[in-house]
């Protein structure tokens, strides 16, 4: 499981790629644009002069300035860049879509107005928490997300992935937890009613060994363990 690249790393690499390409292209265009604006600025002052010299003579319709070959070159170049962007990111897109390992730790997530309910399956029994989830560090987690009432979106900035919670449908989303214990917030990213702003959940990442020790000790011990962990962060 150690060779699995976490979702947040994949996201950052793509974000950097797009930013580099964007800076080169948009930056180049902008520089050329600024140069044009200053270089070809007319010396005549705008409104007042034209008012005095109101054109009355020939009324003539002009159609276009003929394009030069450079236009086609630019078109071709952008086409190539865009095509490369698509091709190079398809693999990452598919990678983020499907859980890369069968050993992923499953957590069921159910959105409701206004909160998140999490379910673990421990020895065939279900352990529920509401408003917080305790996860082992450095582990691939598979969230199975749905909604009990309206359209929500589950995600956390630290995962850099999110998925919609839609009533009647089970969506999966995988992520790899950070290597060290930490605490952060999961949000709802789709307007789901007047309490949308309060629809958050604490994500508590704990030491992997400690977590699985409790997990393997059976449902009751596990429930007590996660409640104890959560109490620390209230």
């Amino acid at each position: 499981m150690n060779d699995i690249i976490p979702t947040y790393d994949v996201w950052w690499s793509l974000f950097k790629l797009f930013t580099t390409v964007g800076l080169v292209i948009a930056g180049g265009v902008t520089l050329f644009y600024i140069y044009t604006l200053f270089r070809y600025k007319s010396d005549t002052t705008p409104e007042d002069v034209s008012l005095r010299e109101a054109a009355t003579g020939i009324r003539r319709i002009l159609i276009e300035t003929k394009p030069r070959g450079v236009t086609r070159v630019i078109l071709l170049l952008t086409g190539v860049v865009v095509f490369t962007l698509i091709v190079t990111t398809i693999d990452e897109t598919i990678y983020l879509e499907y859980t890369p390992t069968e050993d992923a730790f499953p957590v069921w997530v159910t959105g409701f107005q206004f909160g998140w309910e999490f379910e673990y399956e421990v020895d065939g029994e279900t352990v529920k928490t509401v408003g917080y989830v305790v996860l082992p560090a450095d582990t691939v987690i598979e969230f199975k997300v749905t909604s009990r009432d309206v359209f929500h979106t589950f995600g956390a900035a630290e995962f850099k992935v999110k998925v919609d919670a839609i009533p009647g449908i089970l969506n999966t989303m995988w992520t790899k937890t950070p290597p060290e214990p930490s605490v952060f917030t999961a949000y709802c990213y789709e307007l789901c009613g007047v309490g949308h702003s309060f629809m958050t959940a604490k994500v508590i990442v704990v030491d992997k060994d400690e977590f699985f020790q409790a997990y393997n000790a059976g449902p009751e011990k596990f429930k007590a363990y996660i409640e104890e962990v959560a109490a620390k962060y209230r």
């Binding site: 994949v10 996201w11 974000f15 964007g22 990111t89 983020l96 789709e190």
Partner: peptide
């Protein structure tokens, strides 16, 4: 100017992978 900036930042949202974090 705004169009160049607004357009370039929109390309990110065309990638499913990047949109997974930026959506919403």
């Amino acid at each position: 100017f705004h169009f160049i900036l607004g357009g370039a930042t929109g390309v990110y949202l065309g990638s499913i992978a990047i949109d997974k974090n930026l959506r919403g």
